[in-house]
Amino acid sequence: MTQRTMIEAIQNAHDVAMERDDKVVVFGEDVGFFGGVFRCTAGLQAKYGKNRCFDTPINELGIVGTAVGMAAYGIKPIVEIQFADYVYPAYDQIVSEAARIRHRSGGDFTCPLVIRMPAGGGIFGGQTHSQSPEALFTHVAGLKTVVPSNPQDAKGLLLAAIEDPDPVVILEPKRLYNGPFDGHHEKPIVPWKKHPLGEVDDGYYITEIGKAATAREGSDVTILAYGTMVYVAIAAAEEAGIDAEVIDLRSLVPLDTDAIKASVEKTGRCVIVHEATRTSGFGAELMSVVQELCFYFLEAPIIRVTGWDTPYPHAQEWDYFPGPARVIENLHKVMGA
């Protein structure tokens, strides 16, 4: 075990994977010499050489498109999109190509590649450094989409993604890179280096894709969350004095419906929290799943707390971000019903 930030855990996952398998290559904008604008690939070029970790031209279509070609050849690309907000030029390569190559070629070609991208807000990044576009990936058949919420899972999910035979999109909540953030922006965070969840296993291990974790046990209501919202949900439950069970989904597709079902059957109530915009957000999918699987156990309508259906603002960030106050209000609502 070593105490690591989420950034260091991700860097370490790359290192472990590259050490284990010389087919693993890592590339993206500023990831080579500099080690990435968030430092998630620091030192890899110096250690493994320019053939295995390199800078690219600024062209996201090119980054993902070449990764698809490499995966077809049989090497294992991990690419970084500098911010999730810049993935759109690559969308065609992800949706029409990476996601479908196995199916359309009858298994003749496959596309095991990993696309990492920092996502989410809370850093005053405005509309082009704050988005949570997970629903644009979860809607696509053939892709897996995961969102870690702590250093141990960030490393384990990345190592699992590298070994996965199909394309995996990893959205890394950048607001969690240095420590868990519960939405109380006026208070300093406890850095991962001083946090029990900052303890990361050394060497190789995986966190299975498709398995949720229970971030807080409780019996009154189930909160379904992922990424930054896991900590917002925990803070809200504690401040409201409501014994909520917080499920950290970790993997959106495939989704751990067993864990969701077990928890909601136990509590009979469900609040869904995500940072992304509401309409057609992943919360809509979660609501359907809960409705389909747990209808007869529900004692109140399911509620979702989300970002507003607007672009992510710059200055008014904290009136956009679904912080503890909004979650608390909705917890009371669902308990009162």
Partner: peptide, 19 residues
């Protein structure tokens, strides 16, 4: 500071009911 109402204004010319 700029108003938080302006998060919602200007997404569309006419604000739809859900907004």
């Amino acid at each position: 500071s700029s108003s938080s109402r302006d998060i919602f204004e200007g997404v569309y010319e006419t604000m739809p009911a859900h907004l």
